[in-house]
Simulated assay, not measured.
Amino acid sequence: MKENIKILFEHYLAGKTDPEQEKILMEYLADPANADSEFHGVMEKAWTKQTRETDYSLAAVQGLAQVWDKVEERQPKSRLLFPLLKYAAAIVVIISGALGWYAYKKAQQPVQTAIAFLSKTTQKGEKVKLILPDSSIVYLGAGSKLTWPSHFVKGSLRNIQLDGEAFFEVKRDTTSPFIVHSGQMQTRVLGTSFNIYAYPKDGTFSVAVRTGKVKVSESSGGKVKDLSLLTPGMKLLYHIKARDYNIHTENITEVNAWIKNSFVFKDVSLPNMLRSLERYYNVRIELKSSKLTQCRFNATFSNKSISHVMEELRIMSGKHMEYKIDTTTKTITVWGEGCQ
């Protein structure tokens, strides 16, 4: 009997039943003793034939209202028809309930949706603190750009893009590795704090770790090559043109010193140092002597004005480097006969 009812139910949903068959089906469904889950399979087939999204538009709501209006207009002409309306109400409840259950079931399944991307670009002399969707914190340095998704998908990679310098405090999530893409370089972590220096024009890329572990890789020709696994106090310096790198130790307090206006330079060429100073202090520096390009410096400047920094560089060069500051145009001209 139940099997025949299920077949009849399928025909009803397909609009292939006659009035007599509908009466038999409605009488069966209206009986509380038959209120079990035997029709779930039939309803699942009906659900799969529905559109991917439920239509909650005004037109759809108005259309449904018109259907109910027509039902209400059918006043029973005899006592024989009155139970039929009761049965009709019963089957509407069953169908609506079952379809609603499958709609809920379908809603629980993950849906692939387009993810919007956000970005922040800082100007020279500017640094900002950002909080990402996963609660990770980023301190974005001057003249830098960070791009990240509006939300991260649990269990998937947390990919972001950096051009410039930033210090990261990554929220730990072992199921969702955090990857920073900087040109051909990739920095992968689970939860840690580290600094990345990746200005495209500088020709160098560096990663310094303050806490946790960081894996640095190089991407070339669609292939990813692992370079090194860094732990606290380690810094990797990659030379982009030569495609080689070296690793050395660094005081962990210096990893993100720039956040507090303390700038640390270790064996840095004068041209690269001047480019960094331009970003930090929002000035334009013109190097007029090729003889100074080979000069290299080790220096730390903490909360110093740009005029103080330039004077210290002049002294460190053995006073072979000269400079002039134009406060009106915020331009610094540098020249000299090399370094001592």
Rank of each mutant, 00 (worst) to 15 (best):
K120P: 02
G155K: 14
I94Q: 09
I95E: 09
I95Y: 10
E126I: 02
T113Q: 13
S150H: 06
L157E: 14
V153C: 08
K106A: 15
Q109A: 15
T121K: 13
Q112D: 08
R158Q: 10
Y139G: 00
K154W: 04
I95F: 10
I131V: 15
T113H: 08
T121Q: 13
V111C: 01
S144Y: 07
W101E: 01
T113F: 04
I91A: 03
Y139W: 15
D134S: 08
I115R: 07
P133W: 12
P149K: 12
A88P: 00
S150G: 07
I131S: 14
V138P: 04
G141T: 03
W101G: 00
Y87Q: 14
Q112G: 01
G143F: 08
Q109T: 13
K145N: 15
A103Q: 11
S135M: 09
K106C: 01
L146C: 01
A107T: 03
K154Y: 12
T121W: 01
K145A: 11
Q109I: 15
A116Y: 11
K124V: 02
T147R: 12
P110T: 13
A89N: 14
L140F: 06
S144I: 09
V111F: 06
I91W: 04
I115P: 05
Y87V: 06
V93T: 01
K124L: 04
T122I: 06
L118Q: 09
Y104I: 01
Y139V: 03
I91C: 01
L132R: 02
L157S: 12
S150Y: 03
G97V: 00
Q109K: 14
L140D: 04
D134C: 05
K124M: 02
G143I: 07
A103E: 11
L157C: 02
K124H: 09
L99I: 08
F152E: 06
K127P: 02
V111Y: 03
K124D: 10
P149E: 11
Y87F: 15
S96K: 02
V153G: 06
H151G: 03
G155V: 15
H151K: 13
A114M: 13
